[in-house]
Design a binder for these strands. Structure first.
Lengths: 152, 152
DNA sequence: CCGTATCCATTCCGATACTG
DNA sequence: CAGTATCGGAATGGATACGG
């Protein structure tokens, strides 16, 4: 029996993107892309992975529409990898993940990389889930329901 | 050379939790836990994975402090798996991931599972990143900086 | 400098059988 | 029902060598 290879057809939005970013390196590549990295060598130096798998991950991210390649920038005949709008839209996810990790995976006195407001240098506000009318929602205040858009 | 086995010592909060939730199944188990699932068999039925790997994942999540086991609830001699506060704190991450996925991985007319306010039935508000004084921040408005807490 | 192709070691997953 | 133990196949990742 083949291994569970894909979540493409899952109706759950948590499952479906796992093919694109469910692997360990992809999220780190996206993080670096947000940080301004664009060149193959920059990613490789930052992440320290083998070139073949970096190549594979990059292609996968392009195939899933999170990155796209642009021809040059310096005269070279190579590619640069930039976030698409789909990739950029991961910003809140990454920010929430950062906050969760800082709170639960770091000792209070441990040095860490923080996401801050560029203008003020202050850390960004804690991500919260709100109702459509602005109340803060806890997990218990929410439910998962099936939504069938009318195909009018 | 050993494969990169762990991100435990990374100073980047994006990297460090990958050992705990970077694998494909863990996030889905957490999702199901938010959904109220607690028993081994419930998870297995929902996810359709082999019992040995479910067992391994569950143990890993317990070891990383996202789940904890409680003795019974019905008289049986078995365990139930519940989210810890650390696991519950993943709520905004999961919610942000859901929203991103719904927007970019589903066709507009495609049926999907949505996170809604239990009281009103309305979908939760879109997750945004705010500055400490309440402005909405785009990726460009932010920077990553190293933070060294004073060890007073 | 930017990749691609090949090889090898490790890991992971699924099925199955087994215990309580 | 709730797990554990074992096995085999598949996919992955790392190193390296090579080509543009």
């Amino acid at each position: 029996m083949p291994r569970r290879t894909s979540h493409e057809d899952a109706s759950c939005p948590v499952a479906r993107p796992l093919d694109a970013i469910g692997d360990g390196w992809s999220l780190l590549i996206i993080r670096d892309a947000f940080d301004g990295l664009r060149r193959f060598g920059e990613f490789q130096k930052s992440l320290g992975l083998a070139k073949n798998i970096l190549s594979a991950r990059l292609h996968s991210l392009v195939a899933h529409g999170l990155l796209h390649t642009v021809p040059a920038s310096d005269g070279s005949a190579y590619q640069e990898y930039q976030l698409t709008s789909k990739g950029r839209a991961l910003f809140p996810v990454l920010a929430a993940l950062r906050q969760w990790s800082e709170e639960y995976f770091f000792e209070p006195d441990e040095t860490r990389a923080r996401l801050v407001d560029r203008g003020t240098g202050q850390p960004v506000a804690k991500v919260e889930i709100h109702s459509s009318d602005g109340r803060v929602l806890d997990p218990e205040d929410t439910v998962i329901t099936m939504y069938r858009p009318a195909d009018a």
